[in-house]
Simulated assay, not measured.
Amino acid sequence: MTPPRTDRRCPFWVPVLILVLTIGQLAVAEWAPGIERFADKAFGARLIAYPLMMLLVPAVWWLAVKRRRPEEPVPYGAFSLIMLGFLVDVTGNSLDLYDSLTWWDDMNHFVNWVFLLTGIGLIIGGPVRPGWARVLMVAGLGAMLAIGWELGEWYTFIRHGTELDTAYEDTLGDETLGTLGALLAGLVVQAVLRRREVATTHEEDPADPVARLSGVTGEST
């Protein structure tokens, strides 16, 4: 029996480690007594929601792709990118960076959306043509997720809290940063998938002058 192919760029233990580190910090935040920086940040809800969100895309991929095409390589690298933003968020709370660094929250909305949408884009972006449509798809999906995240924050933290005076400006800023992060992710996804497509074409027909030219010059469409 032929063993399942995996993503040679990333071993399987990387997303597992990210998941374990995230859950471990969430458990400490929820059950360790007397740590002020964890107070009133809904870590009980995060302990349930974050692992579910981290495993959602791998579970859907396994059901939708792996069961139909067992030979398909497992995209552990993309899974790791999707999970990485949750680890960064929890680690920022563990190190009290949200309160000690004024720019940390804004940076998270940008960088974590780069991670998240790059991972998602690498999984679903392959069949999308042309390249500009692939970029717009990733950016648009990121914008939708940014809006959904802000709705969740409003429902969980803001609607009965003390941040109503600044909520509008903060929400617009976070949605903008998330969308810009998703746009950058779309450009990264396009570059990575285009490079793979050129390499695949060259492997299939190394005598093809177009493939040779594209591989040398890095031209894209």
Rank of each mutant, 00 (worst) to 15 (best):
E169V: 14
L56N: 00
R5W: 05
E30A: 12
P51G: 07
E175Q: 15
V90H: 03
L52A: 10
G148V: 06
F43G: 02
V20P: 00
G121L: 06
V135R: 10
S220N: 05
P58H: 04
R9V: 02
L183M: 13
T102D: 12
G34Q: 06
L116A: 12
L187P: 00
G77M: 07
L122R: 04
W13C: 02
W31G: 10
I158D: 10
F12V: 04
I35D: 09
V20S: 00
E204C: 04
L177K: 10
W61E: 00
G77D: 07
S214N: 15
V57T: 11
F86Q: 12
V57E: 05
Y76P: 00
L56P: 00
E197R: 05
W13A: 07
R67D: 03
M53H: 01
T200N: 13
D40A: 13
L116S: 09
L145Y: 13
R69P: 00
I82N: 04
W149D: 12
M1C: 10
A143Y: 12
N112M: 11
A185L: 05
T22K: 05
W31P: 04
E197H: 01
R194E: 13
A32W: 15
L81S: 11
W113V: 08
G24M: 09
L47Y: 03
V88D: 04
I124D: 00
T221L: 08
P130D: 06
V216C: 05
W104Y: 15
T176A: 15
G92W: 11
I123S: 01
D7E: 15
F38C: 04
E197Q: 06
L116K: 09
R46T: 04
D106P: 00
L87V: 02
A211W: 01
L122N: 02
M107R: 03
L55Q: 03
G92T: 14
P209E: 06
V60Q: 02
G126F: 01
G131P: 02
W13M: 05
Y50S: 01
D105F: 01
V65W: 11
S220M: 09
I158E: 09
T91N: 09
Y98P: 13
L97F: 09
P73R: 08
H202G: 03
L116C: 14
G126A: 04
G121F: 05
W104C: 02
V28A: 13
L183D: 07
A139S: 13
G34I: 06
L193V: 08
R196D: 14
W13S: 06
L183N: 07
L164S: 12
G215W: 11
V111P: 00
E150Q: 10
G125T: 01
M144P: 00
D208N: 08
P51R: 10
W132E: 02
G92I: 13
A78G: 05
F12C: 05
L101R: 11
R67I: 11
R195C: 01
L17E: 00
Y168R: 14
R68V: 07
G161T: 08
W61D: 03
